[in-house]
């Protein structure tokens, strides 16, 4: 009986820990050090398939001649995931028991990570995909999938397919001032193998400011690349 009680206490405690992590990521964060292109852990760039390399080369060539029609963020469409997690603009995390919201300063974009749902939530085809998450101890593990192909992975024009999956492992530093995100991308149509890039955000004391992309670029542009 004593053993049974101990066993139950163990399992109740473990469930409670999964539901109520000690880590509180609520606050405003900003990436420390940015690069226009993804640098994978250990150095270098993601290894592209032939099709991926072709799309990337086309994007780079277009950008070199000043044509950014492949980058719909230039006409205020949402940067996707993981690009929003790689940008240098701040974002706010609101950590709650059943959701974790990421509210990005860039054009006021919202993202809700559902901790009480399993993928897929709906039918996909979203700029930011659909995010579900779970706590592994004090690490928040986010699965995002269900993308459209109108976004890029980074500012340099790295493409992805609609089958991309992104896994983020977010963990606070011991002092709570830094947040480390280990981002893993799987997309066999574009990349020869899964790759991981790890980025760090610093806690900010200044508030998010209102950013209105349509105003920044002088009015919304009813133009699309296709």
């Amino acid at each position: 009986m004593k053993t049974l009680v101990a066993l139950m206490a163990c399992c109740v405690a473990s469930t409670a820990m999964a539901q109520a992590p000690k880590a509180d990521m609520t606050g405003i964060w900003r990436r420390v050090g940015t690069t226009p292109n993804v640098v994978v852990d250990g150095g270098g760039q993601p290894r592209l398939t032939a099709d991926g390399a072709k799309q990337y080369a086309a994007n780079r060539a277009a950008a070199a001649r000043g044509d950014y029609s492949h980058d719909t963020s230039k006409i205020c469409l949402p940067d996707g995931i993981p690009r929003l997690m790689l940008k240098g603009q701040p974002f706010e995390i609101l950590q709650r028991p059943t959701i974790v919201a990421f509210n990005y300063q860039i054009n006021r974009l919202p993202r809700v990570v559902y901790l009480d749902a399993k993928p897929p939530i709906e039918n996909g085809g979203y700029y930011l995909g659909e995010s579900t998450g779970k706590w592994e101890g004090d690490t928040l593990v986010i699965d995002t999938r269900g993308f459209n192909t109108d976004t890029l992975i980074d500012d340099a024009g790295l493409p992805h397919s609609e089958d991309m999956t992104v896994t983020e492992r977010l963990k606070l530093s011991a002092d709570g001032k830094k947040l480390v995100n280990q981002i893993t991308v799987v997309d066999p149509a574009i990349f020869r193998s899964p790759w991981t890039t790890t980025v760090t955000y610093a806690r900010q004391s200044t508030p998010i400011v209102e950013d209105v992309c349509a105003e920044r670029i002088g009015g919304s542009k009813p133009k699309r690349k296709r």
Partner: peptide
Amino acid sequence: KPAEYVCEENNRNAP
């Protein structure tokens, strides 16, 4: 679950 709402996508009513 509030949906992804992208006003800027193909804004047919742009003034």
